[in-house]
Write a protein that binds this DNA or RNA. Structure first.
Lengths: 143, 143
DNA sequence: TATTGTTATACTCTATAACTATA
DNA sequence: TATAGTTATAGAGTATAACAATA
């Protein structure tokens, strides 16, 4: 049997866990024609109607330039619509189809997230989310 | 202020945490001329001298085909050496330079992992690694 | 028959620079 | 002067198929 010293490195295990769970979620969303970033955007647009592409990108840590093809694809699929705020900014909204699609995606995600947590032994379960949030967010950004 | 419903999704937060910490580690390893995958490999080769590229790829979840350019780069840098096991398989070993380089990389990584854990509030800290391992590994693979 | 190492290739994600127009 | 939206491009990482040689 091979030795695996990496199993004790939190950073490494974090990467592997994220990759494994991400691949699984991607597979579950594929039948809906959505990617993880699509769903993240739909959720944030629904929660913040009229949000701009730039603000959305900042929340998701996606560069402005990389938002363009993603939003274009979702606009072509008629999941989102754009409406000019002023001569420079454009607000994003969900279409009816976008709302319906998000509803299906949310069912997939909610089931997935629940299964994810179920894999964690109960004595660790409630610690996962706050621990991860502490790794990700700057101290001043934490609730 | 924007609403961020994503903060309560473990899968999403996992992805963000992995990306943020990964980017930071990559930046810290850059002065050594190493990537994260390089260091993972050096660690595993040191722990399992003579391991084959295929076995290494299986442990790291990297396709055989994608191991080729990584190993070539590390061989060109004289960090690893290959020695034929039989007519088909090739064992990997660290060179002296590879051992020295790994020693420097390990200092970087150990400091990084310690800082990572320090960001986690103490009441959650000891739960992070077992929770992540539960997400990543199949139940029958857990210790 | 399965496995090793390899080549070639394509796709996604991400990062950067530059440009126009507007706040 | 800073920001929004965009185009173009390059670099990683990853995935698949195929092949020859060997176990």
């Amino acid at each position: 049997m091979m030795k695996d010293p990496l199993a004790s490195y939190p950073g490494y295990v974090l990467r592997r866990a994220a990759h494994a769970s991400g691949a699984e979620l991607t597979a579950r969303l594929e039948p809906l024609g959505l990617r993880q970033s699509d769903v993240s955007m739909l959720i944030l647009i629904e929660a913040n109607p009229g949000i701009t592409a730039s603000a959305l990108g900042r929340m998701l840590d996606i560069q402005r330039a990389n938002m363009v093809p993603i939003l274009k694809r979702m606009e072509d699929a008629e999941l989102i619509a754009r409406e000019a705020i002023d001569g420079k900014s454009v607000g994003l909204e969900l279409t009816r189809a976008g709302t319906a699609k998000l509803s299906k995606a949310r069912a997939v995600i909610d089931a997935f997230e629940a299964e994810l947590l179920e894999r964690v032994p109960v004595e660790h379960r409630n610690h996962l989310l706050p621990a991860l949030n502490a790794l990700w967010r700057e101290p001043d950004q934490q609730g």
